[in-house]
Design a protein around this nucleic acid. Sequence first.
DNA 1: CAGGATCCTTTACGATACTG
DNA 2: CAGTATCGTAAAGGATCCTG
Lengths: 119, 119
Amino acid sequence: MKKQSVVNNTNICKNRIQAIKDTMEILSGKWKFHILGTLMQGGSMRFMDLLREVEGIAPKMLSKELQDMEVNQLVNRTVCNTKPITVEYAITEYGKTLSPIIDEIAKWGISYRSSLLNK
Amino acid sequence: MKKQSVVNNTNICKNRIQAIKDTMEILSGKWKFHILGTLMQGGSMRFMDLLREVEGIAPKMLSKELQDMEVNQLVNRTVCNTKPITVEYAITEYGKTLSPIIDEIAKWGISYRSSLLNK
DNA sequence: CAGGATCCTTTACGATACTG
DNA sequence: CAGTATCGTAAAGGATCCTG
């Protein structure tokens, strides 16, 4: 009667690896974590602001990464009727579900830095 | 006397972004999360086992990624005196500090999958 | 301001073959 | 078995110019 243990260890492992693959595919590229981290603390930001905050990124790359994330509903793009036009980017509610990941990454980076200093 | 508030909001933000940068630099490349996830659940593994488990990776890439991570002390390489020689890879204690990140990534991937199914 | 178009350079990645 | 060598492609990245 213990038929549910068909879900064996091997399967759980495979699923876990598949899950990592899935997530990383969506967050692939050099800049996505970086952009998400910036948007998470900056609220709504314009293209130019992002270009300034995400140091080192070229407009071409920023544009491409934002499009990727828009497709995956992680960020929201809003055109404002100003003159000249401005565009606001913000994290969606769905995108916010990534914040535990970003938080852990930031946390690790911080302790990494301090472990470098204490040598 | 409140001189410590020199650490203002802007600085905290910059540090956070820098921390994300640091972490992602160490975990850069297409395969590191994947390999780490595998090693975390597999314990000590041989090169060939990894090649099999990390589906799709080429030996060259596996070798390179493992070397990167060895330099950063995330994984441990042990040569065994067998015939023919075998090599065991395992996560270091330091590497294990990355597990909250990997866990969050796996968790997100799993709920991402199930949200796809419920459409 | 927001970004697309173009061109060019440099890495990253992949497939296959080979060696101690 | 555990890799390295070699070669080729694709993507990343940078610089500059252009347009609605």
